[in-house]
Design a protein around this nucleic acid. Sequence first.
DNA 1: AACAGATTGTTGACACCTAAACAATCCACG
DNA 2: CGTGGATTGTTTAGGTGTCAACAATCTGTT
Lengths: 157, 157
Amino acid sequence: MEAPIVTGPRYEALLELLRAADAVWNASRAFFARWELSPSQFNVLNVLRDQPLGLNQTELSQTLVMHRSNLTGLVDQLESRGLVRRREAPGDRRSWRVVLTAEGHRLLRAILPPYFERIEAALAHLSLPRARRLATDLRRVRKQALNPNRPDPLSRA
Amino acid sequence: MEAPIVTGPRYEALLELLRAADAVWNASRAFFARWELSPSQFNVLNVLRDQPLGLNQTELSQTLVMHRSNLTGLVDQLESRGLVRRREAPGDRRSWRVVLTAEGHRLLRAILPPYFERIEAALAHLSLPRARRLATDLRRVRKQALNPNRPDPLSRA
DNA sequence: AACAGATTGTTGACACCTAAACAATCCACG
DNA sequence: CGTGGATTGTTTAGGTGTCAACAATCTGTT
């Protein structure tokens, strides 16, 4: 009784994927705490880095893959610290253009070098070709996860 | 001005890791919605599956890698649906032994086949050896993420 | 010009996780 | 015994995400 349930390497890989992402996310939370930033706050700053004209909050939410409503609070927090500013959007009175302030740029310049250094160190054990293959595999997993379209040929016709 | 910032394959892999995990998590949320279960609720049931004596909430929190305080609500929800029961723990009046009810077992038996089928389908494009390598790489990434101790032997002696 | 429908940012309700504090209970050591 | 220090589950507050609904605004069509 209690069928043993065979799991297999693919299931194993999926579990490891979730565990690894969780660990990485927590590590990054600890890393950014030094500057009293959450990972999401950092991501906002990082996305704005090479956007001299800024982005509106909907554009931000799309590149960060999160809901619009999230950006309200996120930008509020960063703005109250003077790292970011809401400018009026020329020609559209509904939206703002969110831009980095000089101080935001300064903070980002301080964070980025140790940030990339830390990432390189954490993945140092992966050769570059292997890192490339890892990225490729993960990209495929993501696309498949998003598309349950496959009418799964297994579901007995 | 604005140093170009070289990212590299390892950084790319890290980003894909986070994105893929997010996609998988969301897909699983959509998947379990059919039975009005959250992924976390499912995980509780799944962990209890092969535990005839049940687990207490601290043990559950350790295997699920989440805080104790979370289990209170999670078990409350499952118990109110009759999927799980809190039994008195023999010899320890502080804790409960959380066990699956017959109905919990029935629900799990209904969920597991399509669950594993779905996972296999989502990762079907990965050959088994490749899935194994993916799991290995992810395991290493997780361990490195948790241990920033390594003074990384590469950092120019 | 004017109206219908889309889009923007905000709000409020909810879910889920963390962390600190608490009472009840266990355990080890004198 | 009995007493001090751990452990268990709960509560509370806080962070971060989702989603639905809303007013303000834009856009396209007539």
